[in-house]
């Protein structure tokens, strides 16, 4: 066979491979969305999103899941804020202040990747152990702290990956104007990496709001809307879990409606964040 023929076959092979893997992924995604829509839409009602449950979560066909919607927003919102307050300074510190400590920063990256890889149930168990030790009960605060711990590595590394791409020349240019490290970090790096930072926040928020295992032991579950940090709190993933494990068909379908609500919440937050980004931070330089 000639060289040319081999290359044509190779080209064809990879094209077919790409076509099938792309369509497989699109199909699976469509299937998930369609099944959520088909099963969830009929049960989705104003009652679902405006009322708390009646009749318990295994058997209740009445009421809604407002408790879980609010609970999840509190939980994910609170932990995303906390995680952001820690992650942004750490990511900037790694990439601006420690720019010369290549080995140290790479070790930190490695450790963060390890933390990222630990399943969230382990974080949940850890949080639970600490709670028992301190004599605390399941509460919103315990959940926020646990989820914060588990999304911090995700957020830092996602920010860090973007900050790594900032060219050395921009750093040099900023320093040559006489700026300090902090000015370089918060006035230049922050702006240049803004869209990546938003992505990191959304990624972490999505993981936080969608995770069931870390909140199972720490926030617990309740039918009421929490009014303080020390109360147990319902969350959407757990409400989906409980509704799905109900023997009653209607309650099971409400799980799909809950999943739909969760998806819509993430969609709305993502769109809002992107609009905010377009509006206020549009000066990224493409080097």
């Amino acid at each position: 066979m000639t060289d040319r023929r081999i290359r044509i076959i190779e080209e064809g092979f990879f094209r077919v491979l790409m076509f099938f893997s792309t369509s497989a992924i699109v199909m699976v995604l469509l299937l998930i969305i369609i099944s959520i829509l088909v099963k969830g839409l009929p049960s989705l009602s104003w009652e679902m999103i405006s009322q708390t449950p009646r009749g318990g979560f295994y058997f209740g066909k009445e009421g809604g899941i407002l408790n879980a919607i609010i609970g999840s927003l509190y939980l994910a919102g609170g932990s995303t804020l906390l995680a952001f307050a820690v992650s942004l300074p750490v990511a900037l510190f790694m990439n601006v202040h420690l720019v010369k400590k290549v080995k140290l920063v790479n070790t930190v990256r490695f450790l963060l990747d390890l933390l990222w890889g630990i399943p969230s149930i382990v974080y949940g168990a850890f949080g639970f152990t600490v709670m028992v030790y301190l004599g605390l009960r399941t509460s919103l605060l315990a959940g926020i702290i646990t989820v914060t711990l588990f999304i911090i590595p995700i957020m830092i590394r996602a920010m860090d990956e973007i900050m790594k791409t900032v060219p050395r020349g921009l750093l040099e240019a900023t320093y040559s104007l006489g700026s300090t490290r902090s000015e370089t970090a918060y006035r230049v790096f922050f702006r240049q990496c803004f869209s990546g930072i938003i992505t990191a926040i959304l990624l972490a928020f999505g993981r936080g709001i969608g995770d069931a295992a870390s909140v199972l032991f720490t926030t617990g579950y309740t039918d009421r809307i929490p009014t303080s940090l020390s109360q147990p709190t319902a969350t959407l993933p757990l409400s989906i879990f409980f509704q799905l494990s109900s023997p009653i068909k209607e309650v099971q379908n409400r799980a799909y409606a809950s999943a739909l609500i969760l998806t819509i919440i993430i969609l709305i937050i993502s769109v809002l964040a992107r609009v905010f980004e377009r509006r206020y931070f549009k000066h990224k330089i493409n080097f």
Partner: peptide, 21 residues
């Protein structure tokens, strides 16, 4: 060191504008 750098304006070989207007 920032005082020393402010004494000098550096024009680098490739332009690196800041991510601002």
């Amino acid at each position: 060191i920032t005082k020393i750098r402010k004494k000098m304006g550096l024009l680098s070989q490739r332009p690196y504008p800041l991510p601002m207007n």
